[in-house]
């Protein structure tokens, strides 16, 4: 074998070795995800039942459930979505379609990049001082929802901008050529065409918010909630004045959310509560991974449907 042949053989061997290394590390990373899901399932699947989903937390692990946590997560997400989506989409629209390249825009861009990297617990600290005490919202669903809305705002803004950027320039030019104002171009063309992209980003953002624990602990969300927020327009009990609950009274209610309930059970001693934690973890992971899967489906359908 000549030296050059030996070198070539060695180089081929190098490539093959890296091929194996890269593939196996990827597999290991995915296996960890698999182990996590299996471990949760092994411990928690036995606890997962209809009564677990519909019971309130309890001192007795076998009777405890996640009803208040599921409902709390749902209500908080409503506040988050209704705040973050309009605000984030509007901000993204402005930055992509209106703003000129000047120092003001540059500052906003650096600012958003930084906000996306601020640890979530810092948002919680801000919300504790501002929402809970200064605005007097207390440890309410409204305060929790607003906190998470600020947290996911950068994700929504970035998703909106990317969706808008993928719309070809000639769409805008055609609309302007027909005499449309800038707002009409945005309203009648850019917004509808970017809906799929924005929806993908919003779903990812909400899946992040639904698993967020730390900022809500910081603002003082409770861990033991044995009641549900008042459902709008349902009868109020007589001892509480009677009549109907207002449409927005749930915003003031105390709450807990799924990840906090799980955290509470993880930190308690005793095997029985760990099974509850695992069962809550299954629900949580089904929700987040489900939302992520939904986002992928939306993105793929959009790619197939739109041909510029």
């Amino acid at each position: 074998m000549t030296p050059i042949e030996r070198t070539i053989r060695f180089r081929r061997y190098q490539d093959a070795a890296f091929q194996v290394l890269g593939a196996s590390l990827t597999v290991v990373a995915l296996l960890v995800l698999g182990a996590l899901v299996l471990d949760l399932a092994k411990t928690g699947l036995g606890r997962l039942s209809w009564s677990f989903l519909t019971s309130f937390p309890s001192r007795k692990a076998e009777q405890a459930g996640i009803a208040s946590a599921i409902v709390g997560s749902f209500y908080v997400m409503i506040v988050t979505a209704f705040t973050a989506i309009p605000l984030g989409v509007a901000a993204g629209m402005y930055l992509e379609e209106y703003s000129r390249r000047n120092w003001f825009t540059a500052i906003i861009e650096i600012n958003i990049a930084n906000l996306a990297g601020v640890p979530s617990i810092v948002y919680g600290l801000m919300a504790l001082s501002l929402f809970v005490y200064t605005f007097g919202l207390g440890e309410s669903i409204l305060a929790g929802g607003l906190t998470l809305a600020l947290l996911i705002l950068p994700i929504v803004i970035v998703a909106t901008r990317e969706a808008l950027r993928s719309i070809p320039l000639h769409i805008r030019e055609a609309a302007y050529a027909m005499g449309a104002t800038r707002w009409q171009v945005v309203r009648h063309h850019l917004l509808p065409y970017s809906t799929g992209g924005i929806a993908t980003g919003v779903i990812i953002a909400l899946s992040r918010a639904i698993g967020e624990t730390a900022p809500l602990i910081t603002i003082g969300a409770l861990t033991f909630i044995a009641f549900l927020p008042p459902t709008p327009l349902t009868p109020r009990p007589e001892e509480d004045g009677g009549g109907l609950y207002g449409p927005f009274e749930w915003l003031d209610s105390g709450f807990t959310v799924l990840p906090i309930q799980m955290f509470n059970w993880v930190s308690r001693p005793g095997e029985a509560f760990l099974a509850n934690a695992a069962a809550a973890g299954i629900v949580l992971i089904v929700a987040t991974l489900g939302l992520n899967a939904l986002a992928i489906v939306v993105r793929n359908r959009m790619r197939r449907r739109i041909r510029w």
């Binding site: 182990a35 949760l40 698993g211 967020e212 799980m262 973890g281 949580l284 987040t288």
Partner: peptide, 10 residues
């Protein structure tokens, strides 16, 4: 995407 509290449990 996995919630961090689930990672803590893990």
């Amino acid at each position: 995407a996995v919630p961090t509290v689930v990672y803590g449990y893990f």
